[in-house]
Design a protein around this nucleic acid. Sequence first.
DNA 1: ATTGGCAGTCCGGCACGACGAGTGCCAGGC
DNA 2: GCCTGGCACTCGTCGTGCCGGACTGCCAAT
Lengths: 340, 340
Amino acid sequence: MVSERGLEVLRVIVHDYVASREPVGSKSIVERHQFGVSAATIRNDMALLEEEELIAAPHTSSGRVPTDKGYRLFVNQLADLRPLSAAQRQAIETFLGDSTDLDEVLGRTVRLLSQLTNQVALVQYPTFSRARVRHVELVSLGDGRVMTVLITDSGQVEQRVVDIRTTVDESFLSELRAAINAVIGGRPLGEASAALADLPARFRPDLAAVVGVVVASLTEQIAAGRQDRLVMAGAANLVRTGDDFSGDLYPVLEAIEEQVALLRLFGEMQLDAVDVAASIGRENASFGLSQASVLASGYSTQGSEVARLGVLGPMRMDYSTNMAAVRAVARYLSSLLAER
Amino acid sequence: MVSERGLEVLRVIVHDYVASREPVGSKSIVERHQFGVSAATIRNDMALLEEEELIAAPHTSSGRVPTDKGYRLFVNQLADLRPLSAAQRQAIETFLGDSTDLDEVLGRTVRLLSQLTNQVALVQYPTFSRARVRHVELVSLGDGRVMTVLITDSGQVEQRVVDIRTTVDESFLSELRAAINAVIGGRPLGEASAALADLPARFRPDLAAVVGVVVASLTEQIAAGRQDRLVMAGAANLVRTGDDFSGDLYPVLEAIEEQVALLRLFGEMQLDAVDVAASIGRENASFGLSQASVLASGYSTQGSEVARLGVLGPMRMDYSTNMAAVRAVARYLSSLLAER
DNA sequence: ATTGGCAGTCCGGCACGACGAGTGCCAGGC
DNA sequence: GCCTGGCACTCGTCGTGCCGGACTGCCAAT
């Protein structure tokens, strides 16, 4: 069983190792922190910690380094996050100040988060499926081609060009536009496809084919829009972190570019909109990120729906500060999106 | 003056160094290539090459390595690019097969190019300013807010939400839409802003303010749209290339993320739509990329306008193959975009 | 102009030893 | 029962010296 002081020792080991990047020994602990006991006593505690696999020695008789499990316990113990500095709060305000476009807001958010934490920042686009259709627009492009634009109440816009192979007049387009909006306007995307299914049958046979093509395109568009997307910033920070990724940051860069793995990871982390969750080291093994840690939190757009944002970095990172930054940015983003 | 054989020697030095990543010496040259002369002769040629600063020795009495100048001469000599393999041509066809959306096409293109070359691939969005306005759409979102959608003939779509603070009815919106399209429909973006300027004055005074807000938003949108954008893929290849960036690939990753530097670089490279240009090593110094080389070519969208695409990698790359890949992809992309 | 030979230079790897940091353990003190 | 000081031991690191290998540069001969 690990004693109370043992936990304190773990805490300072994590802290010092994060700061110095070097294995920390019993002697340096007693001289850098007031423990009121001797180095030998600390050594005993460290022996226990090692037994519990919370810390490990890179080689016999050298300082100790936290294991994934150690970081995990450290993070769990982390009751109150270090609040941000005034300058940082300021930065959030000015950086996200006023923006209208969703793309713009998320783009700024991800850059901000990356700057605050000096890590790779990730922001997921609001998941589409719970959003509602606000409007569907049809625009004739000439040459028998029509552009369909799908606008949701979360402010997202998806457009697509569909080839209908015949020319249609503007009045038919208006009619079709009205019909489509009547059927799916205001409905959640999840239900929209089904609702569209019987639309072609309501038109004259010679037009049904065209309607069918447009509906098929919209259906596809809805499905495609539901695929989650991710914006990312700060990849350069990965290499700046020194040799934390022990030479093979290839899988990390790959995962970032793939996005799929990261989205799955975001999905599997248990998140509500208030807390910041962490996934540490081997907990990410199935995503090829067993050297990395991911901190994430949810943020809410207008409705109750929740998307995610967070940072990715080496296990050896400043969890306290970074989790505080993630939380602050998530909250600010939520409030910003709520008032739109 | 460098002899004919001297140039040949430079060629094999570049080739062997690219392949083996090791400085190449006179002895290994004569045994790997049929020169019909002895190593000592090659050494004399190499001394000349070194005098011209086309090659350099990392340390006294070791093999030679091409300098930027050497690569440059090598590339200039490169008359005929190595044609792509059948498999590669196949890959281009299937990868870019059928796609409608511009985003989709460029996304696939950049991934393809990255795979073909094993380098970081970059594709610039078609520059907007020469594109023409195809259609402007106004969509009421309720709550006194209107979404403006700008569609160009290059297939790009930019949307933006504008807060008009009053409720307007659909008929006014139709009227405004018609007026806007009448004024700027079919005109190049460069002229559109000016053409819009006197639009508010043509409406009833109580509506002019609203028109003014919408027009201002559109003007901004046009300006924002003209900012060039870049899509990128294959950043993971940077680290895979070994230690070519001698530990400091931070500036490279940074430049990739910033985009601005790369766009400037693309802009400064002299490109027409047929040839592939190269910018090597210190030629990129002002962009923080003095360790890297960039290969780029132009591609054309419908009109005559030209955007750019290319790859970025270490100086030590296979110029012949990669330039062929860039050229092939640029050509295929041009033809694909022409037939839309 | 080309060649073979030879001396000189430098890198990389390896073994060796000194040093220092840190541990584990034990006997003794509170 | 917990803490402490001391001591032996283990390793990693760093500097040194040494050797082999791979080149080059130069020169005299062809």
